[in-house]
């Protein structure tokens, strides 16, 4: 374990999580954001309100163009909203912050740096001495099972391995909030399942708030405590769906299947 890792607590129960989770709280108030597309204003976020408890796992789903990635980028501080505000632990978000880390759809690794240097990058950028940063990077590399690939270059990795390096890089800065932008969308089906399981385990171990944008409904139900459903049509307001399933989750449990069916129906799919 890294020296700064939180003390271990019995995992699987809900009580310690909610107690430990005074940090990493996200509150979105009356958020508006529109883009100009072909000279027409396209309102993707229309007065969104949302509260995410510290340590919660929230998935955001919806058709493309519904604003789910925009919402994530606003939370990350990479986009400024037109109106409204985002509060993290009660403080308004201005730009990027050290309490948040992003995992992108592409691994976005530095191609000239080896795996260890890539994982340590976030810490080194923030001024952590190299030796300390790399030591902590090693810890998280072990957590994603890539300790044997420290000296490999990104081009030598498979897609799933590269994405794991990106995950380790985000974890190494020990954020309160992990923002994931369709992180598994580019992976093959088998790898995707494996990394989903890893994400579920890491989330339980690290006790971070996790906000996951995905277009994979099963992934949303597998990983999230709640699912935020956004839609493109102005008439339909955003909906929140609870996922009251025990962890670790079984994709074939009748309750799981029923939830997935409900979610699919809400998109008019069968």
């Amino acid at each position: 374990m890294a020296p700064t890792a939180p003390p271990s607590s019995p995992s699987g129960t809900d009580l310690p999580r909610t107690l430990a989770a005074s940090r990493g709280e996200v509150s979105v108030r009356d958020l508006y954001k529109s883009f100009t597309l072909n000279r027409a204003a396209l309102a993707v976020l229309r007065g969104l309100n949302l509260s995410v408890a510290g340590g919660e796992s929230l998935a955001i789903v919806g058709p493309s163009g519904c604003g789910k990635t925009t919402l994530l980028r606003v939370l990350a501080g990479l986009e400024t909203p037109d109106r409204g505000s985002v509060l993290i632990d009660g403080r308004p978000v201005v730009g990027v912050g050290t309490e948040r880390a992003i995992i992108y759809q592409e691994p976005r690794l530095l191609p000239w740096a080896n795996v260890l240097a890539n994982v340590a990058f976030g810490l080194e950028v923030r001024g952590t001495p190299r030796a300390r940063a790399r030591e902590r990077a090693r810890h998280y590399l072990r957590l994603v099972g890539l300790e044997a690939f420290e000296t490999a270059l990104p081009r030598q990795l498979s897609g799933g391995m590269a994405q794991r390096v990106g995950i380790a890089r985000a974890l190494t800065v020990q954020p309160e909030i992990l923002l994931l932008d369709e992180p598994l969308a580019a992976l093959d089906a088998m790898t995707k399942l494996t990394v989903q399981e890893e994400l579920a385990r890491i989330w339980a171990e690290e006790k971070v708030t996790m906000i996951l944008v995905t277009h994979d409904l099963e992934e949303a139900i597998y990983l999230a405590d709640r699912v935020l459903v956004l839609s493109r049509e102005t008439e339909l307001p955003p909906r929140l769906l609870d996922v009251p399933l025990p962890r670790p989750r079984d994709r074939n449990a009748p309750e799981f299947v029923a939830l997935r069916r409900d979610l699919m129906r809400s998109f008019g799919l069968h």
């Binding site: 990350a76 501080g77 990479l78 990027v96 880390a101 976005r108 976030g122 950028v125 923030r126 800065v173």
Partner: peptide, 16 residues
């Protein structure tokens, strides 16, 4: 540009 955004999101300044 995606690498630049990644670095910025970790708080990298101009020099870094």
């Amino acid at each position: 540009g995606k690498l630049l955004e990644m670095a910025r999101s970790f708080g990298a300044g101009r020099l870094t």
